[in-house]
């Protein structure tokens, strides 16, 4: 066990965990920030996507010891009132079915638009390809990313 100081959603948080603990479980178990989801634990499904210094990152294979004071943003911190353009587009298109993958989808999409505000259809598909949706909402995901990119 060791103490780590993290910068999460603009707040400083201290946790005492094993240095190998992935950020996903620190968020979920220690900090009770359960918006970030567990889907595979091996960086294949994207359910656990967070922003690390603004870049979409899989938190399930990111040990706390490697994070230092880099800025972490989770779905809970994406916007104050749930009104990030990507969140708004997701609601308007009514993307979710079960909804479980959607926090990860939104974190991937919002990082994409941050870096590339006007992605082409191909760029959207390519970037969103890392996030699995078992319910098959891919067509709506693309539409919502497109809508958010225009706003």
């Amino acid at each position: 066990m060791a103490t780590f100081t993290l910068n999460i959603n603009g707040k400083t948080q201290e946790v005492d965990v094993d240095p190998s603990t992935p950020i996903l479980w620190v968020l979920r178990d220690n900090l009770k920030l359960v918006g970030t989801k567990y889907g595979c634990g091996i960086a294949q499904c994207g359910a656990c996507t967070i922003h690390l210094n603004g870049t979409a990152t899989r938190s399930c294979m990111l040990p706390i010891s490697s994070v230092g004071n880099q800025e972490i943003t989770t779905i809970e911190g994406l916007s104050e009132n749930g009104d990030h353009p990507v969140q708004k587009a997701w609601l308007e298109v009514d993307v979710p079915q079960c909804g479980y993958c959607q926090a990860g989808q939104i974190m991937t999409a919002s990082a994409l638009l941050e870096q590339n505000p006007n992605p082409t259809d191909e760029e959207i598909e390519m970037v969103m390809n890392g996030n699995i949706c078992r319910c098959g909402t891919y067509v709506r995901i693309r539409k919502a990313v497109k809508m958010a990119s225009k706003s």
């Binding site: 178990d29 009770k32 920030l33 359960v34 918006g35 970030t36 989801k37 567990y38 989770t74 779905i75 809970e76 994406l78 749930g82 969140q87 997701w90 609601l91 009514d94 979710p96 909804g99 479980y100 959607q102 926090a103 939104i106």
Partner: peptide
């Protein structure tokens, strides 16, 4: 008529909704 998912806002803001999200005082894994 078209009505949005009643849990939509909670889903897109990452609120606890699922079994895996359950936290309780004294709960073990």
């Amino acid at each position: 008529t078209d009505r949005m998912n009643v849990d939509g806002t909670k889903i897109v803001t990452g609120k606890p909704l699922y079994g895996l999200d359950i936290q309780r005082e004294g709960m073990l894994i």
